[in-house]
Amino acid sequence: MFWASYLLAALAIILAWPAPIALSRASWPARAPFTAMVLWQSIALAGGLSMIGAMLVWGLEPLGDNLVSASAGFFTILLDDESAQTLGVVHVFAISAATLLFAHLLFTLALTFIRIRRQRRRHRDMLTLLSSPAADQPSTLVINHPAPVAYCLPGGARSVTVMSDGLMDLLSRAELDAVLTHENAHLHQRHHLLLWAFAAWRSALPWLPTSQLAQRAVSELIEMLADDEALRHVDEPTLVRAIAIVGSGALPSSPDALDDPLAETGRSGGAVRADVTGGTADVQSTAHRLRRLLTPLPPLSRLQQGAALSAAGLLLVLPPALLVAPELLG
């Protein structure tokens, strides 16, 4: 069983380090955002699985030739209070680490879910008081604010898209449509579930630089997917203009626009400015989105997409296969 644990460890390291870095530097994801998204998901899932699997298999090794008999042996030790002598301290440590990592990942996922849901509910409560439904679209809310803002707040049947009247003043009807289709695509394609999973992965493993890379890449890819959806309804110059108008106005030109409530929360205008301009990820994301719309590249060929998707599938199959392989090979 040792060789299986070493292979799993090698896979875990590849998926934690070189693979995400290569994928985040590649240029093809802009040509096939959906495929890239699938690949990111399988890297994250297979990465976690092989990390846990490697420690578990290695830890259980002294107890049996394969995972089933070794686990049975382990439970005998646990339940019947047998001595863990056969296992040795290092192996016990590996098993504990695998269990802890697994629990940590699950708990972070649950906690992130609860935290996000609470923030959304509070936000929706305030929206009920402060916004009014748009004239022709009941699931679109309009809020009184000069900054051109549009966003969507997922929440099952109560999902809403919010626009500021500052945005409505700046954009033409067609440009507004582009923005709304873009935001509704986020809701229809359930992008919030991806954001949730990768936000959880990032807060679970903040020391892993690739968890940041993955979250950034995923937030960028969902914007591209939503842009593609918008392009089915409006033409490309309209969408580009909408992005450019909102983007160039997104930075509050007078700090007063955001200043007042901050005095109460004890933050100075300067700090906010730094916050607002600090989002380097977003800056790149907007640039990538525009470049992709202005100089469109042909979508990835079927063959290339197939290859990427096969790689994703293989990644998902590999860790479980390595876990059970010692059994099959005797």
């Binding site: 935290r115 803002v149 707040l153 807060s203 607002v276 977003d282 800056v283």
Partner: peptide, 20 residues
């Protein structure tokens, strides 16, 4: 909505993120 923080990204999706 406007201030960027990593933990806010999952709460809502903005049309355009912060721009320098």
């Amino acid at each position: 909505v406007l201030v960027t923080a990593p933990d806010r990204e999952a709460v809502l999706a903005r049309f355009i993120g912060s721009v320098s």
